[in-house]
Amino acid sequence: MKYTLLGKVIKQSGLLLVAGSMLLGVTTLQAEIKPAVVYDTAGKFDKSFNEAVFRNGVLKFKADTGIRVTEIEPTNSTQREQSLKKLAKRGHGPIVAVGFSMASAIESAAKAYPDTHFTIIDMVVGLPNVQSVVFKEHEGSFLVGVLAAMKSETGVVGFVGGMDIPLIRRFACGYEQGAKYQNNNIEILQNMTGSTGAAWNNPTKGGELTRSQIEAGADVVYAAAGGTGIGVYQAAADLGKYAIGVDSNQNYMQPGTMLTSMVKRVGDASYNSWQAGLDGNWKAGFQALGLAEGGVDWALDEHNRELVTAAMEARVNDVKAKIIAGDITVHDYMSDNTCAAPQGINFSN
């Protein structure tokens, strides 16, 4: 009797085990990922960098897969790390952190949660569970530099940067090379808005810098300054000159005076990270996305169609093809922290 009872128990528990494992199997098949994003302290509606992640990443991912992406906007530096860790603890992943200022927070969160997948944009963090996505902004800036030089009648073009960091100098340096590639005698005026994070969100100062550059002769001004750019585009529109947007396609913001935008596909990078998480082929490591990978590009749409002539379009696309083919190598400021005379570029036209 005893034995049969025991046998029964074993049988039943065995059945339970089988049933349990089947259930588990089913759930792993249906398992959904819990993607998340932590924006920079500038906030998600900056019309530029963070917003690109929101519109082309978060919204698109939701539309395509039906999976909601949890979004966090930290207000101070303590909350960056706090929210990353809390997301990891709740089983979220892949978690995308937007911007270089997240680096130290990612480092400590990734060490604390080694099984969670993190993706950081614009910075490299060398940990086995971190994917670092950086962009070759110099290549995209080179293209808009060519375009600016073609559009300029005065032979002077301007650049307004946000925070004075090597990353933004990389934009400036690429732009300078592109403009000079088109017109070796062109003059490039450069200003940085500030040296702190506040420089990303100071449209007033952006407008003032633009006005002074235009007074000094510039008739195309390129902004790589996050929310500060709004003031740059406004000032250019007020004075009837041209501006070039950055990160998102900002052509719609001042239609008629926005020459183009240097698009940096941060949204796609976030989207790809989540998609890879969903497909189960997410990989840590380092990616540098340039023109060839479609990570950066110039924007042509109904808002700037009339400003870009067929000749300009052909020229820019020709330069783009040459960069992709490797015929033109754009110098990267961050490789040696100088914007030396570009090597291997033929200035004659």
Binding site: F100, S101, S104, M123, D164, I165, L167, S195, T196
Partner: peptide, 18 residues
Amino acid sequence: MVYMLVNVLREPGNMSPE
């Protein structure tokens, strides 16, 4: 503090003023 952090105290190679 902007001056101190950007020009004096910033760790070499770090883009953030820390």
